[in-house]
Simulated scan of single mutants.
Amino acid sequence: MDMSHIAQHAGTAGSLFATIFVVATATMRTMIPLRVFGILANVLLIAVSIPTHNYPTMALHAVLLPLNVWRLHQMLQLVRDVKKSVNGDLSMEWLKPFMTERKCAAGEELFYKDEKAEHMYYIVSGRFRLVESGIELPVGAIVGELGMLSPSNTRTQTLECIEAGVVLGVSYRQVEELYVQNPEFGFYFLRLASARLFQNIETLEARLAQAHLPVPAQVVSDTA
């Protein structure tokens, strides 16, 4: 059997296995396994195309291979960073690649109390304040993420820019897509949001405790 027949049989076998991988990708419900099988299919089809001189197929999968590798890297990095955020300082740095920049002028209101909530924001620079509570949010803070979990999806406060700055915004739809694509990401996002909610409750309890502190005796005597 000459080399041409060997190449032909190898190409047929390779195409069969590549077809199996392609079909497998269609059955995947989550993004990471889909990308892994996509990469395997790309590599196999490139290998099959070389001895059979199928250059169009080789060129196509040579383009798709780095794209699949990059998307897989992004998703794995996303999962790692979310885990780190949950166990660490609750940073939202992992979400930046999926967010859109928005410049805000002093006096501009990003959203109003009782309006429908559709986005959450990451503060990059400037100064922002929640009007009703008077709380000023620092650079690096995330705001608006709990509206996604609210049954009514409405804002509980107004967010105002008090000094020009930049925020990064992401829609709830994008977050939901990430959740569907990768349930592990969704699980850690829910843990992250829950941790933030408990932080808010602890802050409120601390303020209530301070408000009910007894007046020191020295202060009473000084004012008598």
Rank of each mutant, 00 (worst) to 15 (best):
D114I: 01
L190V: 09
C161E: 02
E115S: 04
T203E: 12
R173N: 02
E176R: 08
K116D: 12
V124Q: 07
E108C: 03
I142W: 04
F198M: 13
F198R: 14
A195N: 10
S150D: 09
R173S: 09
V167A: 04
K116A: 15
A193G: 10
R207N: 12
E132Y: 04
I123P: 01
A106C: 12
T156V: 03
R191Y: 05
A117L: 03
Q157Y: 14
A164E: 07
E202H: 07
E176A: 11
S125E: 01
L190S: 10
A141S: 14
P183C: 02
I123G: 00
G107A: 10
Y172F: 05
T203N: 14
V131A: 03
I142V: 12
I201Q: 02
G126W: 05
E108V: 06
K113R: 14
S171D: 05
E160G: 06
E176H: 07
T154H: 08
R127E: 04
Y179Q: 03
L149E: 15
P138K: 09
F187L: 12
L204Q: 12
S152P: 10
E136P: 04
V175M: 09
C161Q: 11
E118R: 15
A206C: 08
R207I: 11
A106H: 15
M148P: 15
R127D: 03
G147L: 00
R196D: 08
V167W: 00
T158H: 02
E177I: 10
P151M: 08
R155C: 08
L137S: 02
L192Y: 07
Q174T: 11
A209W: 15
F185L: 03
L146W: 09
D114M: 03
A117H: 02
E115H: 10
Q174F: 07
A117Y: 12
A164T: 13
L204F: 05
L168W: 11
G134E: 00
A195Q: 03
L197Y: 11
G165R: 06
V175W: 10
E184Q: 06
F185W: 04
V170K: 03
E163A: 07
L192K: 06
T203M: 14
G165F: 04
Y122V: 07
G144M: 05
L178S: 03
A105W: 08
L110H: 10
Y112D: 10
L137Q: 01
V175S: 06
E163Q: 04
Q157K: 15
A105R: 11
E115M: 09
L192T: 05
S150W: 05
I162N: 01
V175G: 07
F111Q: 07
L110P: 12
P183S: 04
E115G: 09
E202K: 15
V166L: 05
T154Q: 15
V143G: 01
V180R: 15
E118G: 06
G169A: 09
R127V: 03
F185K: 00
E202Y: 11
R129Y: 02
F111H: 04
E184G: 06
E163V: 13
R173Q: 14
G144Y: 01
Y121F: 08
Y121T: 01
R155W: 04
A106S: 07
R207E: 11
